[in-house]
């Protein structure tokens, strides 16, 4: 079974900020694999270990120096890394990213494509659904438990209403939540061996070309002030005052 994990290299937490000149996240700081994606890498490795065979490939899209954080996935145990890197893809939005990743994934022809549930810096974008649409494959997200057997997968999907159990035949796309496992620390041998594993760079041309963005970032503003903050001292009626406040805001 070939499992491809899509990971994103994001600015390491300490350095995250928006560059006022480009209005996008400042990517000149240290990059690291998004924490959320390490759960996906771990799940891929666990599946590989349980079946005793297969290949785990990590695929990412980013600047050249994103190859460094990809090595962490190799150090954890992935077999190969592929980085789609091209200046034409800088600042790509959901559509552009989905197209480029899908292009790389088509070359890999994986049985299972895994994503982490959320991008640590972009937040909220369902890249997995967009990629699954391009690949014309079934997709299940928010998976907190995954089993693969006889060419099909069963996933426990967490929604606001509880857990659904969903089944889909392979090939499929799955986004795993951070409840699914505890990612392993790379062993020292793993770290030292990572450099020797195959690392491939693909250009925009290799994956079907770049696309103009369909969304734009127009301006950065300071957030609206929190609004008038009230501070009271309890004179015996604090509970009532709190209730009134909550009622005003329709929170109760």
């Amino acid at each position: 079974m070939k499992i491809v994990v899509c990971v994103k290299a994001v600015p390491d937490a300490a350095g995250r900020r928006i560059d006022p000149s480009t209005k996008r996240i400042d990517r000149s700081v240290e990059l690291a694999i998004s924490d959320f994606d390490t759960y996906a890498v771990e799940e891929a490795l666990k599946l590989q270990e349980s079946t005793g065979e297969g290949e785990v490939v990590v695929v990412s899209m980013g600047p050249e120096r994103a190859m460094d954080p990809l090595r962490k996935a190799l150090a954890m145990g992935a077999d190969r890394a592929v980085l789609v890197t091209d200046s034409a893809l800088e600042g790509a939005d959901l559509l552009g990213t989905a197209k480029a990743l899908a292009g790389a994934l088509e070359k890999e022809d994986a049985d299972l494509v895994l994503f982490g549930q959320q991008s640590a810096d972009g937040g909220g974008a369902c890249l997995w659904s967009a990629v699954a649409e391009r690949l014309r494959r079934p997709v299940i997200s928010q998976v907190s438990e995954l089993t693969v057997e006889n060419g099909a997968l069963t996933g426990k999907r967490q929604t606001e209403f509880g857990y659904d159990t969903i089944r889909a035949p392979l090939p499929a796309v799955v986004a795993v939540s951070d409840a699914i496992n505890t990612p392993r620390y790379p062993s020292l041998k793993g770290i030292m061996g990572a450099k020797k594993k195959p690392q491939e760079a693909l250009s925009a041309g290799d994956v079907g070309g770049a696309e103009g963005a369909a969304t734009t970032v127009l301006a950065l503003n300071p957030p609206p002030a929190r609004g008038e903050a009230r501070k009271i001292e309890d004179d015996g009626s604090a509970a009532e005052q709190i209730l009134e406040f909550l009622a005003e805001k329709r929170l109760v």
């Binding site: 496992n181 505890t182 990612p183 620390y185 062993s187 020292l188």
Partner: peptide, 16 residues
């Protein structure tokens, strides 16, 4: 990957 009481957690990795 050790916990507060020194116990091995799920992703425990011994030193080398």
């Amino acid at each position: 990957g050790r916990g507060r009481a020194g116990e091995e957690l799920g992703n425990f990795e011994p030193g080398s």
